[in-house]
Design a protein around this nucleic acid. Sequence first.
DNA 1: GTCTATATGTGGATAGAC
DNA 2: GTCTATCCACATATAGAC
Lengths: 189, 189
Amino acid sequence: MNGLTRKQEICITAARLFKSKGYAAVTMRDLAAEMGIKAASLYNHISSKEEILNEVILAIAKSFTKGIRNIRSSEDKITEKLQAVIAQHVNLTADYPFEMASLNNDWMHLGEGKKEYLNLRDEYELHFREIIKQGKSEGVLKNIDEEVILFSTLVTLRNLYIWIPKKGVVDRDKIINSLNQTLLQGIEI
Amino acid sequence: MNGLTRKQEICITAARLFKSKGYAAVTMRDLAAEMGIKAASLYNHISSKEEILNEVILAIAKSFTKGIRNIRSSEDKITEKLQAVIAQHVNLTADYPFEMASLNNDWMHLGEGKKEYLNLRDEYELHFREIIKQGKSEGVLKNIDEEVILFSTLVTLRNLYIWIPKKGVVDRDKIINSLNQTLLQGIEI
DNA sequence: GTCTATATGTGGATAGAC
DNA sequence: GTCTATCCACATATAGAC
């Protein structure tokens, strides 16, 4: 009725619970209760609890990596690329705040999918690092240790999910602008 | 033999496990195995799993709040206060990286102690926010939304535990300097 | 301070009826 | 697609011996 499969509904509900208690502390009975059904009924739509985590985390991890791959290979200037990275984080976080929490906090409970997740994360950081390096070599960014820039920027962006849901949906642009200032003006020449 | 009580040893070992899997996924058997004893033996030193979490989280939460209370009430200039806040985070994180992970990720599993933890956290953020406000009113900090400054700074500092253990013990000062640059130059006039 | 044995509860997951 | 009933593994925690 809402265009979602039952499996998708389960994953969305699960992500919300995972955010509040963490994957390990959420039981199939909790999840079922939240869906208004019994735990056994869940297994008509998913094969295991772990499969749900896989669905929740890998979908958004792929979006991030695909996005930054495009940003890096674009013809934009460095500053524009960095702004695009920030905007992607704000937008994906505003759309999927619960999934972002699992991505950050529950990835270690992935089974089958952990390797793929780690590959996606490594590729993401690789592109980000290369954008920063390019910025330094072009003289657009200050000569601060790449890893420090990468860490402090990425940590802020990855944790937006803690903070964005508190704000209204409307002020995405305001958040993007503020982050552009706070994050970029500390590192730009 | 090492100056630690058995209870302290248990809490230290527990914190290390909590960091890698999260509180909920660590069993008393895991913890006991890591200590080289049986699970039942743990209960001669602690009364419950939850008590361990309380010990781990509240000790470090108190240190942070006490520290920033002193920094705020000192006669230092704003820039020095902000640098002192950064230095406190780097030092406490370097000393207690595992406890920092629990502080960030496992506080929702506190029982008895949750209220106290939330009070400490609120007080911490209050002092931090007031330092930022004072900086803005004195014209030392840019006129960026306080909450954005607070969020992006605090999130970086709170997640140092992910990053600091990778570095050697030696370069605390280098990290403090880099963070001073990255975090402060984006917000200072 | 640690052990073995065990009580008691709850977790993920399956079988089969409707 | 959901239910009831149930299996079985594993969780926290206690009792009492050494």
